[in-house]
Amino acid sequence: MWLEINNLHKKFGAEPVLGDLSFRLAERQMLSILGRSGCGKTTLLKIIAGLETPDAGVIKIAGKVINNVSAHRRNIVYIYQEPLLFPHLNVFENVAFGLRLRKIQNPTIESKVLEMLEALELNEQARKMPHQLSGGQRQRVAFGRALIISPQMLLLDEPFGALDTETRAVMQVLLKKIMQTHPITAIFVTHDLKEAIIMGDAIGMMEKGKLDIYPDKKTFIEHNEHVKNEINFWQNL
């Protein structure tokens, strides 16, 4: 498997957050992780991104241990619930940010960014500042800024959590479409059951620092009481 996580442990003070967590993920697959707040999802993502260090455990990508590689060399982008656009840069420069860090030539940046803005339906907004955008537009800029550097992996921490239901549905479709054209290995964390089913190729349930993975939607539904109750509710209406 492409991503291998083996026996991850993490404590904050005396509080265990991750306890002996292991899982695998194939390349170009999207894993949805469902869990309540405080179940350790964010800590898991931050450890994979290199923003937190695990107390024990090994993280391998394509067979190589990456535990000691620092965050800015991992080429794994972490996307927050808040878009966190840079307030001093306009939309174009926000998307171009990662390319500027890599000292890419101006004409290349220009064409790549315009192409990305096109794909995200943001071409009209290129010169706007972040505070002039709607919530959905801001999150699209955040995606563009992440995808443009072709990361080897994308970590999405409740990326649509702050959006209204309608925008959320539009964004889910858009992200799904982009993932089909630029397939990237990704982990998508959410506490919304429907979203987890829509987005993930595989689905995981996280509880009290443990993660159970179901290889496909069918097994997930079969093994999950909560999902069954939900389906029954709609069928019995």
Binding site: A49, A71, H72, Y78, Y80, F86, H88, R100, A146, I149
Partner: peptide, 30 residues
């Protein structure tokens, strides 16, 4: 907290400490 997250975001986008300060933290702190 927000700024702390922004700093981490720059790292995941590939920015080193120097770039984090010169391109994001200092301009935002103006």
């Amino acid at each position: 907290e927000r700024l702390h997250n922004m700093e981490q975001l720059v790292a995941t986008l590939g920015g080193n400490a120097w770039q984090t300060y010169t391109r994001v933290l200092l301009p935002v702190a103006k």
